[in-house]
Amino acid sequence: MSIGNTLLGLLESGPRHGYDLKRLFDERFGHDRPLHYGQVYSTMSRLLRNGLVEVDGVEAGSGPERKRYAITDAGITDVGRWLATPEKPEPYLQNTLYAKVVLALLTGRDAAGLLDVQRNEHLRLMRELTRRKTEGDLADRLVCDHALFHLEADIRWLELATDRLDRLAGEVA
C-alpha cells in the first residue's frame, strides 16, 4: 500500500495533525499493521518537500511542536491521479510453495505431506479470519474477504498440485 498517497487522500477532508492522521489510517487501513509514528512524520516531510501538503498551523505544548498539515492543490491532483491509475495485478509467478514442492520432489522428500501441512495452515488462518469477519463490521468483512479469497485460491492450487504430484515428479526428475 502507498502510505504517502493514502495519508494524502485522508487529508482531503480537512487539515490534521500527524497523530490524528496516524490514528485515522490505523482505524481504516492498519488492521494488524499499525503505522509507526516515524513513518508518518517521514512521509509528511517528503510530501511537504514535494509541495503536496503545507503546514496549516503549529501548536506549541509541553512536548514537541504539533504541526497541522493541509493538502495543496497539487496534492489533490496527485490523489486523483493515483486513484485513477489501476494497480498492477500481482502475477503470482514467483511462488515459494511451488518451489518447495519441486525441491521436495528433487530431493526425495515428502511433497504430499508438505502440501497437506500447508493446506492445514491455510485453513487455520481462514478459520481465524472467518471468526473475525463474523464479529466485525462491513469494513472488517471486506478486508477479511479479500484475504479469504486469496487463501481459498491458494488452497485450490494446493489441492490441484496434490492431484498432479505423480506427473510433476516424473517431469522434474
Binding site: 485453513l123 481462514m126 478459520r127 481459498e152 488452497i155
Partner: peptide, 9 residues
C-alpha cells in the same frame, strides 16, 4: 467448499 469449512473447528 473451503470457505464453508472455515466456519468449523
Amino acid at each position: 467448499d473451503v470457505r464453508v469449512a472455515a466456519y468449523s473447528d
